[in-house]
Amino acid sequence: MTKRDLIEEVAQQYPRFSRRDAEVIVNAVFDSMTDALAKGERIEIRGFGSFIVKQRPSREGRNPRTGTVVSVAAKKVPLFKVGKELRLRVDDQPTDAEGLAVEDETADDEDETEEDASMRRGVSG
């Protein structure tokens, strides 16, 4: 599915919106997410997942063709972590809370921030 297909489906689902409206709305969703990430903000979409921006330090890399050492500048990368509901849905698992407690080795919570996660690791490890 492409963004165009998504716009089409939104337009079909909301007959009161024109196709142009649907396009403006879909673009506004992803533009606002891009702006938030550009500001280094974390995005959390319940039932879908969360996006964070992580800093990567500069490092020495190699030109794979020539083998020469090149320095790769520090940069920020956007990372996506799939939410529990969607993770189970794409894996064909039941989405009810009962079924997941047993197999869920990560025991993550969508509310969990990076800080929470490192604290938890600190406590249990």
Partner: peptide
């Protein structure tokens, strides 16, 4: 809500 549900 619908946009994310369609994607899912």
């Amino acid at each position: 809500e619908s946009i994310f549900e369609i994607i899912k």
